[in-house]
Measured scan of single mutants.
Amino acid sequence: MGTYKLILNGKTLKGETTTEAVDAATAEKVFKQYANDNGVDGEWTYDDATKTFTVTE
């Protein structure tokens, strides 16, 4: 398990959240659902060194 971070750079929603997941693929699924639930759809990037996903609208 590891802690993964999501940085939201949406047009109307900005912020950060974290999740505990077994791997990056699992964290990505959780974060994409979170972003979708909050109406954020954009370009995704992932930094393996910091376990950080970023979505920018």
Rank of each mutant, 00 (worst) to 15 (best):
D47W: 04
I7L: 08
L8W: 12
T17C: 12
K11Q: 11
D41F: 13
D41R: 15
K32M: 11
V40W: 13
T3S: 07
L13H: 13
T56S: 09
E20C: 10
W44V: 02
D37R: 09
K14N: 09
D37L: 11
W44L: 03
T45F: 12
K51C: 06
L6N: 00
K5A: 05
Y4N: 01
G39T: 04
G2C: 13
F31M: 03
T18P: 02
A27Q: 00
E16G: 07
D23P: 01
Y34K: 03
E20R: 08
K5L: 08
T17S: 08
V30R: 10
T45K: 10
F31S: 00
D41C: 11
L13G: 09
T52P: 00
G39R: 06
E57W: 12
Y46H: 01
Y4D: 01
G39W: 05
A27H: 00
Q33D: 07
N38D: 03
T19L: 09
D47M: 04
T12C: 13
E57K: 04
A24S: 08
T50Q: 06
W44T: 01
T52G: 02
D41I: 15
G2Q: 14
T50Y: 05
T19W: 08
T50K: 06
F31K: 00
D23A: 03
V22T: 11
Q33H: 06
T3F: 09
T56K: 06
A21F: 04
V55H: 01
Q33P: 02
T17G: 04
W44E: 00
T26Y: 08
E28I: 08
A21D: 03
K29T: 09
K14T: 11
Q33L: 08
Y4Q: 01
T12Q: 11
A25W: 10
E28W: 11
D41E: 14
D47F: 04
V55A: 03
E57T: 07
E16L: 13
A49F: 08
E43Y: 12
L8Y: 09
M1H: 10
N36D: 11
G2S: 15
K29S: 10
A35G: 03
A49P: 08
A21V: 04
K51A: 06
T17R: 11
T56V: 07
E57A: 07
K14D: 05
N9R: 11
K32Q: 08
L13P: 04
D48N: 10
D48K: 09
D37E: 12
K29H: 11
G2P: 12
G10Q: 04
E43K: 12
A35R: 01
Y46C: 01
V55Q: 01
V22D: 07
A24C: 09
K5G: 03
T50I: 06
K29N: 07
T54D: 03
A49Y: 11
D47L: 04
T3E: 11
K11W: 10
Y4H: 03
W44S: 01
T54W: 08
V22A: 14
V22S: 12
V30N: 07
T50R: 06
T50A: 08
A27M: 01
N36E: 14
E20S: 11
E57F: 08
G15L: 15
T19R: 05
L8S: 03
N38W: 14
T3K: 12
T17P: 03
T54I: 10
T26A: 15
T26V: 07
K51F: 11
V22R: 10
T56I: 07
M1D: 06
L6Y: 02
D47G: 02
T54F: 08
Y34Q: 03
E43V: 14
V40C: 05
V40D: 02
T19V: 15
D47R: 03
K5C: 06
T3C: 09
K11D: 07
T54C: 06
V30I: 15
D37P: 02
A25M: 13
T52L: 04
I7G: 01
V30C: 07
Q33W: 05
A25L: 10
F53K: 00
T56Y: 08
T52N: 02
T17D: 03
T52E: 04
F53M: 02
N38R: 15
T52Q: 04
A21W: 02
T18M: 10
L8F: 11
M1E: 12
V55K: 01
T17I: 15
G10V: 10
E20A: 09
G15E: 08
A24L: 08
L8E: 02
K5D: 02
E43S: 11
A21H: 03
A49L: 13
N9Y: 15
V22Y: 14
D23H: 04
G39M: 07
D23E: 04
E20F: 13
Y34N: 02
G42K: 01
G39L: 08
T45W: 09
G39E: 06
D23M: 03
T52H: 02
D47H: 06
E28K: 11
T56P: 01
V40P: 02
A24T: 07
T56A: 06
K51D: 03
K14F: 09
K14Y: 11
Y46F: 07
A35F: 03
V40A: 05
T12P: 04
K29R: 13
F53N: 00
E57C: 06
T18I: 09
Y34T: 03
E57S: 08
D41P: 04
D23F: 03
F53P: 00
V55G: 01
K29A: 12
T50P: 02
A35E: 01
T12V: 12
K11H: 11
A27L: 00
T18Q: 12
K32N: 04
T50W: 04
Y46V: 01
V55I: 09
A24K: 14
D41M: 11
T26E: 14
T54A: 05
Y34E: 02
V30H: 10
E43P: 04
K11V: 12
Y34R: 03
T18E: 08
L6S: 01
T56E: 07
N9H: 09
Y34C: 04
I7F: 06
I7R: 05
A27P: 00
T18Y: 15
A21Q: 07
E16H: 10
T50L: 08
M1R: 07
E16T: 15
V55Y: 02
E28H: 12
K14A: 07
N36F: 14
G39Q: 08
